[in-house]
């Protein structure tokens, strides 16, 4: 109340000074009132769905006791974060998370870009459409089902590889789900299979959007396909690549839970190469049911992800201002 009065007083005092500017400002807002009104549902949604729950981050710093209520619980400082840093696992899961997600970003980028460029070269419109549909197909299904497909391939006793393919090649069956050394290859493969199609279509879309005149001019100058790709296609779709990549960097600390949990069938023997922050937290929670600890992990992921985007964006700005996100 007092505040409101103070503001009022201030504005009265300020009226003299801003007599000219204020009404203009107000008028401008009125002009855009319909546009603001149009945005209202969306903005309101973000406030409710995304900003309001952010207060939940306090849970991460509480020694939570629901008999007292969330806010009345004692502060715990960084105690809830300890399990993310104190143990030997902490190093493994952070390493796995960054290496996997980092390699996903790079491999998917290369694969998707390559396929997009090849696809763009296909002349037949019908076939092009056909390929596009097939490539996007894996993106349409949920990870639970992907887990089943992988199992059908790799299962020790019933899998297609061990039962049909390897015997044909005269190779002994491999216990895929207990040999951790294969998974740094299996997981990226599954990830490519599932998501590269989507990225590919995004890149293809931007390649299609490039003005044909550039290529015609290049052909007249005698540039070959490879030169055209390097000096026309890639530079022109760089903004799209940057945007897609920056977004993924922001989420580098979050892993696709389904990929790292469902696909390896939660197999203990594979933990060294399949455990990432999300699955580690989930396993800890299944055993302990501790909400404060999961919140701590969420805060950790958010902050690191945010910092990474800001840094990556900063670097991008230094190199080329136009490609930066903000």
């Amino acid at each position: 109340m007092k505040q409101a009065e103070a503001v009022k007083r201030q504005s009265v005092a300020g009226k003299e000074r801003y007599r000219v500017t204020l009404p203009v400002r107000w008028k401008e807002y009125r002009k855009y009132s319909v546009l603001f009104l149009m945005m209202a549902p969306g903005l309101l949604y973000f406030i409710i769905n995304n900003y309001l729950p952010m207060f939940g981050m306090v849970i991460a710093f509480k020694d939570i006791n629901f008999a007292k209520g969330i806010l009345a619980s004692d502060w715990a400082g960084f105690k809830n974060f300890e399990y993310l840093f104190k143990t030997r696992d902490a190093w493994i899961i952070t390493r796995n998370t960054i290496l996997y997600n980092g390699s996903f970003i790079i491999i998917n980028l290369i694969a998707a870009l390559a396929v997009a460029i090849i696809l763009n070269e296909v002349r037949s419109k019908l076939l092009k459409k056909f390929y596009q549909s097939f490539i996007l197909l894996p993106y349409l299904i949920s990870m639970v089902i992907v887990g089943y497909l992988v199992y059908a391939m790799l299962s020790m006793e019933t899998g297609f590889l061990n039962k049909s393919l390897l015997p044909m090649l005269g190779i002994e069956p491999i216990a895929w789900y207990s040999e951790s050394k294969y998974w740094p290859f299996i997981l990226p493969l599954v990830n490519i299979w599932k998501t590269a199609g989507y990225l590919c279509i995004v890149y293809l879309a931007s390649i299609v959007g490039i003005d044909k005149e550039y290529y015609e001019a290049a052909t007249i100058d005698g540039a070959n396909k490879w030169q055209q790709i390097r000096s026309i296609t890639i530079p022109l779709i760089t903004p799209v690549i940057m945007i897609m990549t920056l977004l993924q960097i922001g989420r580098i600390f979050y892993s696709d839970f389904g990929l790292f949990y469902q696909v390896p069938l939660n197999s203990g023997a594979l933990l060294d190469t399949t455990n990432v922050i999300d699955t580690y937290v989930f396993r800890a929670l299944i055993n302990l049911g501790d909400i404060a600890m999961s919140s701590a992990a969420g805060v950790y992921q958010s902050i690191v992800g945010f910092a990474l985007v800001v840094v990556a964006n900063f670097i991008t700005r230094k190199i080329n201002k136009d490609n930066a996100l903000f």
């Binding site: 855009y32 729950p53 939940g56 981050m57 922001g250 969420g298 992800g305």
Partner: peptide, 27 residues
């Protein structure tokens, strides 16, 4: 549009931070 950059950032920010499951569920 006035404040369009700020509004864009306001929206973009939601992609990076989330409050976790419990508060969303409570809400």
């Amino acid at each position: 549009m006035p404040h369009r950059n700020f509004l864009a950032f306001f929206i973009f920010f939601t992609m990076l931070f989330n409050g976790g499951l419990v508060p969303v569920y409570l809400l």
